[in-house]
Simulated scan of single mutants.
Amino acid sequence: MAQIGGWNVDTLRRRAEQLRRVLAAEPGPEPIRLTRVRAELGNVWKSRIAARALDQCGLLVDDTESRTRQWIEHRTATLPPGFRDEVRDWLLALHEGTPRSKPRAEATLHAYYSRVHPPLIEWAHTRSHLREVTQADVTAILNRLTGHTRVGMFVALRSLFGFAKRHRLIFLDPTRRLRVGAPPPRALLPMTDRQIDAVTATAVTPLQRVVVALVAVYAARAITLRTIVLDDIDLPRRRIRIGGTVHQLTEFTHDVLEGWLTHRQQRWPGTPNRHLIVSADSVLATEPVPDYHLTWHLGLLGIDLEHIRGDRILQEAIAVDADPLHLTIAFGLSEKTAIGYSVLARNLMQRPIETTGRADDNGVM
């Protein structure tokens, strides 16, 4: 692990001492519980290397709850008694999935809960159970909202009450006959020269540059970047496969990729991880980097990958006279999404915009 991770002598000595502490605390022949490792070393970050070493030796038992389950238990514990169990079961079903539905992303759970929490607290003053909530109660909440906030609230409440009705926790679904219509189109404006300059000045490391370049040139999503493997890249032929679509590498993206791959090889020459994007932690295994390694880390630096991606698609739509078929082929967009970008492009082409700094054919901004 030290050889793969490129640890120096001090790092190796420190992590070996942490492993000795864990082994000394559990002298018996039984496998060591993960909660015990974390209790001995202080937190999840410090214990990850020791836990991984024990796991590779067959000496670790994971007795922890998932972080999402812990979050669900913590959040729902503060709800009024008449709503607590139903909301917890609903969130657990979203998290774990059902025979008819796939598990939802953690971000979806956070968004749904943040939307239903205020009305639940308000209803608790006059209602003692979820089954007592009426259609008039839901309508009163929705009538205070507009736009995407209104639609988002309705979607979350419909999910909650739909789950409760299917599991016979309520008698009637108060959202069943309600309609809020389609959400208004989101406003997306091209990036300004100042925003482009800020991203260019901030993305300076080889990893930051390759991530921003692939998003800015090929409109790749962060989740797609995480799944790209080395076999998807052909530098001699200047090709890259992103999400099943093969793209031709420009001079700009070729140089950025070559720089990152050179850095990757020099930093972690023995890693078994075949993914293009790796971190100091992921090089010790074979899994892709977690989502926060890209979106959250770059977000702290002020780099919004989704904004860069949307700007790239919008500029392409303007360049091809808002042709949705071209956008579908070029970026693998759904028909609905491609049409949405085409509508935005037509609206922008009808009025002048103050944006001139754009990536040229070589990806140079």
Rank of each mutant, 00 (worst) to 15 (best):
M1G: 13
A2I: 13
A2P: 12
I4H: 00
W7N: 05
N8I: 08
N8H: 12
R14A: 15
P27T: 11
L34R: 08
W45S: 10
K46Q: 15
R52F: 14
V61T: 03
D63I: 04
D63H: 03
T64V: 10
R67T: 10
T76W: 00
T76F: 01
R84W: 07
D85I: 09
E86A: 15
H95R: 09
T98M: 01
R104D: 06
Y113R: 02
Y113I: 07
Y113N: 01
P119T: 07
L120V: 10
L120H: 00
R127P: 07
S128W: 09
E132F: 02
V133T: 01
L142G: 03
L145N: 06
T146I: 09
T146Q: 15
T149E: 13
R166P: 04
F171V: 11
T175S: 04
R176L: 13
R179Y: 15
V180T: 01
A182V: 14
L188W: 13
M191F: 07
D193K: 08
R194A: 15
T200L: 14
V211L: 00
L214F: 04
Y218C: 01
I228E: 06
V229K: 09
D234L: 06
P236L: 03
P236E: 00
R239Q: 01
R241N: 10
G243T: 03
G244E: 05
G244K: 01
V246Q: 08
V246I: 10
Q248N: 15
T250H: 00
L257D: 05
G259S: 04
L261C: 00
R264I: 06
P269D: 01
T271R: 06
L276P: 03
V278F: 00
D281A: 10
L294Q: 02
L300N: 15
I303V: 08
A317W: 03
H326W: 14
H326P: 11
I329N: 12
T337L: 09
G340P: 05
T356V: 13
M365S: 11
